[in-house]
Design a protein around this nucleic acid. Structure first.
Lengths: 371, 371
DNA sequence: GTGATAAATGATTGCGCAATCATTCGTCAA
DNA sequence: TTGACGAATGATTGCGCAATCATTTATCAC
């Protein structure tokens, strides 16, 4: 029931105060035990409250001497604004909502890192929601976040539910969708084309001379599915596709899972001579398992990984991978949000293709100069 | 200047509305274009506002028929409470502040995952701050977080500044310090003893028969330093210590750095026959580099890693490691917070030793049964 | 010197909710 | 039948700030 969604757990009442209400109030009102408010600062500086507010929020609107006076009072009293009161009065917070499908995934950590890097020097806070790859959880979280009147929102991908899209389009804050390119953004977007990335991986493997390319994919969200689609498409165009060499699982990716998936791939078609892995965990797992089975990489088996976390280039052999600019995407998303918040409508809404990069390493045959 | 810390960037003023103020207000007041409030719901249900508030927050205090009536009105109007107003009136939010030293580190992701797992079904939100291993940044973030009147706070370690501790001890919310054990908590704590962990690693290597143990450590925060201290202590007790075999760097850990550090270790003392690695990135880097140099693991070189992320056990050879219960720590920290929030003072403040576990694998010689 | 304009500052009000205290109603024992 | 008590509900107030509009003070052209 919708109406229940925000209904709290039953509260246990706190122990009643033993001192009287009047005393309590008197104590609260005495400036000594109370956090100073805008009004306290105003009194101390002998100005009006709104001037203090202005000095803090828009110092360029008050005269230099007034600024000094107010800032002195602020410092003297140790005043700091109450975000709740500010939010209530202005109908907007300084929170930026961020919805990610997973928190235990290098991919999103790097995005997160980029976002935090930029947000650090601003007045904004990041509030993260973990959707666990569920559009319904995402929908619920979007509702929760919007209730807080965020200054902006960052979402992952384009796969929001109808209801979520409706809520978002009537929201009064800028929104950036990240990690994908080519869909229809609600507002702004920055990411890369997953189908093109899968296609590029296949093209590289084929170019290397592999003739039985396959791919393994874990946790098939829309984006990884499109990567596989792109991969398949390139193989089909080269007449090298066999659907048996598409091995997938809904489980979340891990190195252990990658090992299992190579096993499964081999059991379905042992002629496979190159594998595109959905992401790095799987890629490393496939490499490790190949080595355990004494399958030589890249000669008997070429491996192309996806995302390219730091570790992949240190493997033996170093993993060829499609590198994705995760950190940059996070950074850019936040910057786009900031620009919109500070100058709404003044900037053209942006839809950015961040691109990706094929890193050719030794887990695929390097035929450069050989043809 | 302190007074400046919350002073905003200059705001750019929004374009003025072209319609008149009166019209705007009239529009805002018309129930059609305004988000419904508690009062709207109260009118619709023909009850007082406070009863609606109670129905939502403490349904056990209203009669069943009243509850049905109010909930019907809530659903009909699509009402959802305004967190800002709630925070202002009650002087507390539903935010839980979480301060982590790094976001791109499997260790903290796992903690995060545990916290989010538990928080999901509650009325609380997590607000993450990234201290970047700086006590001063942490201090600033603590100030920022406290201003928001959080329901609780989770901090990493015991190394807060004097000023931060002062702010925290006068805070009116429960606090859990995680990832460490043995210090003096501000309030509650859950973590493990890093010195004991380092000691255990050394004891294992020595037990395996290694006679020239060393250790490599990156990003020497207080906790990793204590691990190294414990390691050194055990080696000294066994009369097997040589300070040249302590290789450290302030840089943040990575696989590439692990490779460099093995190189450095060998250049300082090539007789080293076992290495304790500060964490898994370094451990994998050391393993990879050893293999590149054709140093056989575990015979010529034993390796013991720290934390034990999923990947380590899939390496060849599988890495021996001290496994730390990161997920459980996160989960428990949140649960401890919850218990305190719901029943303040009723539960004994907890200081929990989560322990750790030595996972013996093939990167160290297994002498079990050989003596 | 006057009026016009801009810059700087102030008075008032209400954002939406929860804490407080007050009241009403029903139930039960004496 | 009465009074006491607890359960259920309500009226009022203020949390701390920012939006609005109003006013005052400086600045300048003529």
């Amino acid at each position: 029931m919708i109406a229940q969604s925000f209904v709290n757990q039953p509260n246990v009442y706190r122990q009643k105060y033993s001192i009287s209400y009047d005393k309590l109030m008197a104590k609260r009102r005495s400036s000594s035990s109370r956090k100073p408010t805008l009004v306290d600062v105003a009194k101390a500086a002998n100005v009006s409250a709104i001037t203090v507010s202005r000095t803090i929020r828009s110092p360029e609107l008050v005269s230099p001497q007034m600024r000094i006076r107010v800032e002195a009072a602020v410092e003297k009293l140790g005043y700091s604004p109450d975000p709740a009161a500010s939010a209530l009065a202005s109908r907007v917070t300084h929170n930026i909502g961020l919805l990610l499908p997973s928190l235990t995934n290098t991919v999103f950590e790097d995005v997160l890192d980029g976002i935090y890097e930029v947000s650090e020097e601003t007045r904004f806070f990041i509030q993260i929601g973990d959707t666990r790859y569920s559009a319904l959880k995402e929908e619920a979280l979007i509702g929760t976040f919007l209730r807080q009147k965020p200054a902006g929102l960052i979402l992952t991908g384009f796969e929001q539910t109808e209801k979520a899209r409706k809520m978002l389009s009537s929201a009064h804050c800028p929104i950036v969708q990240i990690m994908d390119y080519g869909g229809t953004p609600i507002d702004m977007a920055v990411g890369f084309d997953h189908e093109a990335a899968g296609y590029a991986a296949a093209a590289h493997l084929i170019e290397c001379g592999y003739r039985n390319p396959g791919c393994v994919g874990a946790r098939l969200d829309a984006r990884s599915r499109r990567r596989l689609d792109g991969f398949r498409k390139a193989c089909q165009e080269a007449n090298l596709w066999d659907e048996r060499r598409m091995v997938t699982t809904p489980q979340s990716s891990s190195v252990g899972l990658g090992r299992h998936m190579l096993e499964e791939m081999l059991s379905k078609d042992e002629t496979v001579d190159a594998i595109f892995c959905n992401n790095d965990d799987i890629g490393i797992g496939v490499l490790v398992e190949a080595q355990r089975r004494l399958i030589s990489v890249p000669d008997q088996l070429g491996i192309c990984s996806f995302h390219d976390m730091e570790m992949t280039k240190h493997m033996h052999p170093a993993l060829t991978a499609i590198a994705t600019p995760r950190y940059e995407i996070g950074k850019m998303a936040f910057e786009m949000l900031l620009a919109e918040i500070d100058q709404p409508q003044s900037v053209k809404k942006r839809i950015v293709n961040s691109g990706f990069e094929l890193k050719k390493r030794s887990s695929t045959k390097n035929l450069a100069g050989k043809f």
